[in-house]
Design a protein around this nucleic acid. Structure first.
Lengths: 344, 344
DNA sequence: CGCTAACATGGTAGCGCTACCATCACGAAT
DNA sequence: ATTCGTGATGGTAGCGCTACCATGTTAGCG
């Protein structure tokens, strides 16, 4: 016969870490007071609070956030879903989000879809399961199941990158207009044989939207809008290949409008290796305004998108909602800027 | 008088989402069987399992992962702590980690220290509170409090990037040796006035380790090892500034050994703008082997570090531990490769 | 025919915390 | 003196799930 209560022989589950109860005991208060001392200091006497904090240090207490989230039915997680980590653009948006959210005590849950909408749906399911406080996702296109999951959800949803018919909040820029803007510039410069080169545009549909804008302007001017689609994602290598294909397939090409700066810069550097003069022999334009393109000679003509600012603004909108403050505009256009370099 | 049980008047806490209990009721089984059908299919009759899965779809059940984690005292989170998101190097390591962990159903919790060890400690506290399954952190240097927190922790800890005295697991490369390797190459090429240019080396101490290696080789050859420290983080701009300072402060410089490829490429492009011939007038070397440096003309001499592979290998080691498989080597050297370009 | 083992399922008691309500002391207002 | 508010604290009942143990139920075996 054990000298212990028989139902105490059951071994302790959970971790061996001290709990709030032990902190409370050490401070001589109830556990709920200890909880308040940590999470709502204004509701506890200054003296008591100090005693609790001292006890926390003494016993080496680390709050169990899982338990807290279950009890309060909310975590301080922000789900962030992007299509790729290989693209500097998303990294910078994430950086803007992370800086803003972390400063307010929120933790980012990062998900990567690899441009797969089914994968996005799966991530959304998982993230809903974590009781996230909000969800930020890149783009307005989702699978049907994903939209269904989200429309039944009562937390803020922020769609970034582009503008359009959004589920809830929306911060981004008009890609079609960006495409038009660049192509207008190319026409003004006097080029008329202009090729558009994109990479995996079935997946990167924002690049496709820019192409639409591009084509509108050319058609309005009575010009053809030849398109070259590369079957690998944007990179310097792909850009070089794009230049080769454009020159081979359309020998009289005067200018190439690339879907992004990686491609454009790759082409620009490749042109130099081939001994082509930019822009005299071939003009080159990009999109994004990455630092890289501004440091090559000739500097790249491109469109500057405010990526980190977009992340910050999106985060601020979401935070405003989480603080129950009125959100003035559900849709916010961060705009863009034509950066005329020496390559056109 | 309400027709409801009085203690039901209390409004429902938690979310309004269906729970496992409701799934179980819909499938005509107990909740524990429903739980097993989802999490341990082999322990449930095939027929029953199908009925449960069908009920899941019907009621639109999304598992509450917070509750599951509390009950089982483990989440499927992997904490990942890096000093910066602005640096492509860490992004690629994260990519390797993320791909490997996501494929096995683990979710990454990303933390950014901004090169601040106190911030790291705070992140570690938070992450311990989430019952993470493992922690991956960049670097071997931690605050005292951080080491204390981690040494009392019973889950796998992986330190990546460099090699040395680790808390638990360690995957990385020898930065001192990398510095030696590059400088030996520069000596072989016949340069003797070699300047090292780093950025924020008090924080980026791995760059400092490479400088030590660099200095050892020069001192062994009886040469001076002048150092220029820039006070902003690595970027193309900073590299350009580094070149200017090196030429101003050490006019007879023949070669510059930069702490990373961003700096080196910035300097290389700047040299072209200044009309300097590379490597005849000035030789330039970098570190990392970023694609960028391989696409400029002349191509950059650098050291290729296997970043994504480092992330993958680190993740695999951790997974092996989580699967209770023996870990053969707690320390794993991923090595590096001298990439001789046209810039030296 | 009883005994064991393996399989399938269920009941129950937490995991560690917080929401909700209750209590009590004290001073201000009536 | 009574009422009311306010500030500080505590008790308790969950949050939704899984670990642990218990209970059938069937098949296999000597």
């Amino acid at each position: 016969m054990s000298n212990q209560d028989p139902n105490r022989t059951r071994r302790r589950r959970g971790s061996a870490r001290p709990t709030l109860k032990e902190v409370a005991a050490a401070a001589g208060v109830s556990s709920i007071t200890a909880s308040r001392a940590l999470n709502a200091p204004e509701r506890v006497n200054e003296e008591t609070r100090k005693r609790v904090l001292e006890a926390v240090d003494r016993v080496g207490y680390v709050p169990n956030l899982v338990a807290g989230s279950l009890a309060s039915a909310r975590s301080r997680f922000i789900a962030v879903i992007v299509p790729s980590l290989a693209n500097a653009v998303f990294i910078e948006v994430i950086k803007g989000l992370q800086d803003t959210f972390e400063a307010r005590g929120y933790q980012i849950l990062l998900g990567n879809t690899d441009y797969d909408l089914q994968r996005e749906q799966q991530l959304v399911r998982t993230f809903l399961g974590w009781s996230c406080s909000a969800l930020v996702t890149a783009g307005l296109r989702h699978s049907e199941g994903c939209s269904a999951l989200l429309s039944n959800w009562d937390k803020p949803i922020m769609e970034v990158m582009e503008l359009g018919e959004a589920l809830d909040l929306n911060v981004g820029l008009d890609h079609e207009e960006a495409g038009r803007c660049m192509t207008r510039h190319l026409l003004e410069r006097g080029y008329s044989s202009i090729v558009y080169v994109g990479a995996c545009m079935d997946r990167d549909y924002r690049a496709h939207m820019r192409f639409w804008g591009h084509r509108q302007v050319l058609e309005a001017a009575g010009l053809a809008a030849p398109l070259i689609e590369l079957d690998r994602l944007g990179s310097l290598e792909a850009g070089a290949a794009g230049l080769d294909r454009a020159l081979a397939e359309f020998p009289d090409t005067q200018a190439i409008h690339f879907a992004n700066d990686d491609l454009a810069t790759g082409a620009l550097l490749h042109a130099q290796r081939l001994g082509l003069r930019v822009p005299e022999d071939i003009a080159i334009a990009g999109f994004n305004g990455l630092p890289l393109g501004q440091h090559v000679t000739p500097s790249l003509t491109t469109i500057q998108s405010p990526r980190e600012a977009m992340g910050r603004q999106a985060a601020e909108q979401v935070l405003r909602r989480l603080d129950h403050q009125p959100v003035t505009r559900r849709q916010q256009d961060v705009g863009f800027q034509l950066l005329v370099g020496q390559s056109t």
